[in-house]
Design a protein around this nucleic acid. Structure first.
Length: 256
DNA sequence: CTGGGGATGGGGCCC
DNA sequence: GGGGCCCCATCCCCA
């Protein structure tokens, strides 16, 4: 079956440089040999980091995280998981989708520079810190591609096709049958079955299955969180928390 | 109620 | 043009 998706090819020059992000889980198979997943005893990647690669603590505002030992612990329990050996993901079928947490490449490259700091792969400078993202106004001059499943429209066929996958959900989890639009989403999902957590926090060793979650977690170590209330200056690790805070009253009327 | 983790969705950029 | 990868944003749930 499309087990190929398990076989990631980080060896290629393509590998992202999260090296710094997670541990160089050499132990962690770059794919999902679920059957032989690092079960229990230290098979888990949680133990990495902290040593040389500091995620990018430097970027974190003032993070003097005393790396409290209490934090660790959460060594992800090895999910035995039968063996989602095969993932049915049409379209890309065997694409090994490697997104999120593909086993961090043991590359001591630069440190993880969240957002702007890190020049994306080709360092081509993407339109700023993702400002282009959800706001692409879709200039009128461009041809528009409309989704036949919903009212959305895109200025490129590729984008439309990608979007359509969110309707067709070609990637199906062999374990639970849940379907996803993209292979890497499925991969991330599979981690929930395998218990694989390639991303570990350099401060507390806590491991995460998703890089984004690790990123959010790192905020908890920061003295000054990323999201700040415009009224009371209180900072939060997540936008949602700030929103809740605002909704709760602090600065309900003011900006945020 | 707040804070934080888990899981996902989606758009853009690069190869 | 397609595939792969990244990051952001969110929702849900639990402590």
């Amino acid at each position: 079956m499309p087990r190929s998706f398990l076989v990631k090819k980080y060896f290629t020059n393509k590998r992202p440089n999260y090296s710094e992000l997670e541990c160089q889980n050499d132990t962690l198979p770059e794919r999902y040999p679920l059957a032989e997943l690092p079960t229990g005893n230290g098979g888990f990647p949680v133990t990495c980091l902290t040593t040389g690669l500091v995620w990018d603590v430097s970027l974190l505002p003032a993070l003097h995280v005393p790396a409290s030992p209490e934090n660790h612990s959460s060594t992800p329990g090895p999910l035995d998981l039968s063996s989602p050996s095969s993932v049915s993901c049409s379209s890309s079928g065997e694409e090994d989708e490697g997104r999120t947490s593909d086993p961090p490449s043991p590359e001591p490259t630069d440190s993880y520079h969240p957002q702007q700091q890190r020049p994306r792969r080709g360092s081509k400078t993407r339109a700023g810190p993702r400002e282009d993202k959800r706001e692409t106004p879709v200039t009128a001059t461009r041809p528009a591609f409309f989704c036949k499943h919903c009212p959305k429209e895109y200025n490129s066929l590729g984008a439309l096709k990608m979007h359509i996958r969110s309707h067709t959900l070609p990637c199906v989890c062999p374990t639970c049958g849940k379907a996803f639009s993209r292979p890497w989403l499925l991969r991330g999902h599979i981690r929930t079955h395998t218990g694989e957590r390639p991303f570990s926090c350099p401060h507390c060793n806590r491991a995460f299955a998703d890089r984004s979650n690790l990123r959010a977690h790192l905020q908890t170590h920061a003295d000054v969180k990323k999201y700040q209330c415009g009224t009371c200056s209180r900072t939060f690790s997540r936008m949602s928390l700030l929103q809740k805070h605002s909704a709760a009253g602090c600065c309900s009327s003011s900006s945020a």
